[in-house]
């Protein structure tokens, strides 16, 4: 009896398969164009694996890369992917694996974690894929332990943060109190920016009364900043390790009614922060030419692919944007 029952599902399955085949048949009509393109030697394929593409900083970087590719259509193919939120390690590892599966020649990556992405990066290197590290630097000790070469192309975050800190110090007096709002504690650039801020404050004799993390996020920075402002009635400035957090800090300062007393500086020069710097609500931010950072990495990857040279780290420029309104 039950055997009879199976004929119907089978028929439906067959129908589904036919439908699916019909669909692929439609898809395959583009196929004949392919051989023509393959007649010329294939340009290298480069995968750009970004952090959160909900963050304007990374969106700009991705757009810069796409514009660069569009300007040099013959020299390489580009595939851009990002993750949902900045700390989604698993998704980024999965993305790298998927890019490896599609057989790319190089992966330019802004890792969500300076250690967590290394195992997969090592596997990519072992497969002969050129891996170039941008934005957030891989943990140097661990890279050395693994015995692999992954070049870092990017700004010196500590130096950039020190420059921003110096601009702030010039507007304050020795002995003033400030607080630092940092990025995700495990991230190398978060540590570097914090160290740069601290360097500048120390040499200017300014007291850092609180250092707290807001995980790079605006909303969290607003609540962290409110708490810091509440605890420190004499606070003179908030140094934020990125502009998203600076926007949150500005909102908190405004709500506390202390916009006249508390200065805010950020890092990255995203457009919203740039507007605030122009209007004087933020004192300064660092411009590390974010939209070009991925391009620098891609250019270096192409160079390594073309010449086969041993990869080395490369520094890219950082400048401070200072408010003229104050």
């Amino acid at each position: 009896m039950p055997r009879h029952c199976q004929c119907l599902p089978r028929r439906r399955l067959l129908g589904g398969l036919l439908l699916a085949l019909a669909l692929t048949a439609c898809g395959q009509q583009d196929a004949p164009q392919q051989p023509a393109a393959e007649a010329t030697p294939q340009p290298p394929r480069i995968a750009l694996v970004m952090k959160s593409l909900a963050n304007e900083f990374f969106t700009n970087m991705a757009d810069g890369a796409r514009a660069h590719q569009a300007a040099n259509p013959g020299s390489y193919e580009l595939i851009v992917n990002g993750i949902r939120n900045e700390s989604d390690l698993a998704q980024q590892v999965a993305l790298v694996e998927q890019m490896m599966a599609t057989g790319v020649d190089a992966i330019v990556i802004a890792p969500a974690d300076s250690r967590g992405l290394l195992p997969v990066a090592r596997r990519a290197v072992a497969q002969g894929i050129v891996v170039v590290n941008i934005d957030n630097r891989f943990d140097r000790e661990l890279v050395a332990d693994m015995g692999i070469d992954i070049p870092f192309v990017g700004p010196d975050n500590r130096e950039g943060a020190r420059k921003v800190g110096e601009v702030l110090a010039a507007a304050l007096a020795p002995g003033d109190q400030v607080a630092i709002i940092g990025g995700i504690p495990g991230a190398f650039n978060a540590q570097q920016r914090q160290a740069g801020f601290e360097d500048a404050m120390r040499s200017a004799g300014i007291e850092v009364v609180s250092i707290q993390s807001a995980d790079w996020e605006q909303a969290r920075a607003a609540s962290v900043a409110s708490a810091i402002l509440g605890e420190n009635p004499d606070l003179k400035a908030l140094l934020c390790a990125n502009d998203s957090m600076a926007l949150g800090a500005v909102a908190a300062v405004r709500q506390a009614g202390r916009a006249d007393q508390v200065l805010v500086v950020g890092f990255d020069n995203i457009s919203a922060a740039n507007t605030l710097v122009q209007s004087g609500e933020m004192l300064a931010t660092a411009d590390q030419y974010g939209d070009q950072l991925a391009v620098f990495g891609i250019e270096y990857a192409l160079e390594i692919l073309a010449t086969g040279q041993a990869p080395q780290d490369r520094n890219t420029p950082v400048d401070v944007v200072v408010s003229s309104a104050q």
Partner: peptide
């Protein structure tokens, strides 16, 4: 389960038709 298997098949076939790299053992 059949409806889901159909959805899955359609997705696989769709992506295979769109990307020359999708339908592979590695993927």
């Amino acid at each position: 389960s059949l409806g889901l298997v159909a959805v899955l098949l359609i997705l696989v076939l769709f992506f295979s038709s769109q990307s020359e790299y999708f339908f592979s053992g590695v993927t």
